[in-house]
């Protein structure tokens, strides 16, 4: 990544903040590996402990907007997936990764503050 492009990427990422819960969850899910829609939904359900279940309309509506915003890319099905040719895989972009970093940094500092001020019970 060239030093000249990095500020531009940061600028663009900042403009997308704050991320909605659905966008954040999808980015988080794609940060570890490329997944298809069903895979994302299952992953989100798992790492939120079942508290967040993305409905199909919300999931694919959000995916569409994230594609438009270039937070993620879609890939043709990898050759290995013989499951179902309809499935499309999604991959997080540099912009998406940056937006995720910025958002989680912000959240982390928020959580830190909360803990320092004993707003959270568990210290």
């Amino acid at each position: 990544m060239s030093p000249t492009r990095k500020p531009a990427l940061d600028e663009r990422a900042k403009r997308l903040l704050p991320l909605t819960p659905a966008v954040l969850q999808i980015l988080l899910s794609l940060s570890s590996e490329d997944r298809h829609g069903l895979g994302i939904a299952a992953d989100v359900r798992e790492f939120t402990g079942g508290r967040s279940i993305l409905g199909p309309g919300t999931l694919y509506g959000t995916i569409k907007r994230m594609l438009d915003a270039e937070l993620i890319d879609d890939l043709e099905s990898p050759a290995g997936d013989a499951d179902d040719p309809r499935r499309r895989y999604y991959r997080i972009t540099d912009l998406g990764r940056r937006a995720l970093e910025l958002e989680t940094d912000g959240l982390a500092s928020l959580v830190g503050t909360a803990m320092r001020r004993r707003a959270l019970k568990r210290t």
Binding site: G37, K64, R86, R88
Partner: peptide, 18 residues
């Protein structure tokens, strides 16, 4: 109920998920 383009793009996967 969804716009046609949206349906074409994601309909199959949504059905599968449901």
């Amino acid at each position: 109920l969804y716009p046609a383009a949206f349906r074409r793009r994601f309909g199959g996967e949504m059905l599968e998920m449901l």
